[in-house]
């Protein structure tokens, strides 16, 4: 168990590292393009394609990060008036539903990756399309797993939620959002 918790913590750090470096690289390439053009009268041929794909990656990684605390855009009008037990069951259903939908997208995303791998088209420079598409199934798969865990924890109501998702240690907002909902 300890091993998995540590592994999970490492993966969370990796996620953070990837998001920060994706952003900084994007900023760097965008500025580099301007400098190359104005001082050296040239540019990176794949620059624009890289930037477009990196926005997708930033978006997906950001969405993944948001899923740590179930912090996605939602409407969420009514739970408060329900008794606590019903409230839990409903939360379970909602999380489970989210997990299933994400898993579906992950599955078909994987299908697309395989299809693109066979077609072997280049997205930019030496980077194939399948690699830049791969972020979609990866992110949806992890999001799906997270929502499955949320769903199970909602049923069990255990506080190991924190250890498993590792969110409490990192973000106080989670406590806030939990206690306010």
């Amino acid at each position: 168990m300890k091993f998995f918790i540590n592994l999970h913590k490492k993966l969370l750090q990796l996620e953070r590292f990837l998001l920060v470096s994706a952003f900084l690289t994007t900023l760097f390439i965008a500025v580099l393009q301007i400098i190359l053009r104005n001082i050296f009268d040239t540019g990176i041929i794949w620059g624009d394609s890289f930037l477009r794909i990196s926005v997708l990656w930033i978006g997906m990684l950001g969405a993944l990060y948001a899923s740590r605390q179930n912090n996605h855009i939602s409407i969420n009008l009514g739970v408060n008036f329900l008794p606590k037990n019903y409230f839990r069951i409903i939360k379970f259903i909602v999380h489970f539903f989210t997990a299933v939908i994400c898993m579906l997208v992950a599955w078909y995303g994987l299908h697309l990756v395989i299809m693109e791998y066979e077609y072997a088209e280049m997205a930019f420079a030496k980077i194939p399309v399948w690699l830049s598409v791969a972020i979609i199934p990866i992110v949806f798969f992890i999001m799906s797993s997270r929502y499955f865990i949320f769903a199970i924890l909602e049923l069990k109501g255990k506080s190991i939620a924190n250890e498993i998702t590792g969110v409490i240690a990192e973000n106080k907002n989670f406590i806030k959002s939990k206690s306010s909902s």
Partner: peptide
């Protein structure tokens, strides 16, 4: 991280 989490939600 904070701003890109926001963007992640919107881009999704």
């Amino acid at each position: 991280i904070e701003s890109m989490t926001m963007i992640g939600g919107i881009i999704m």
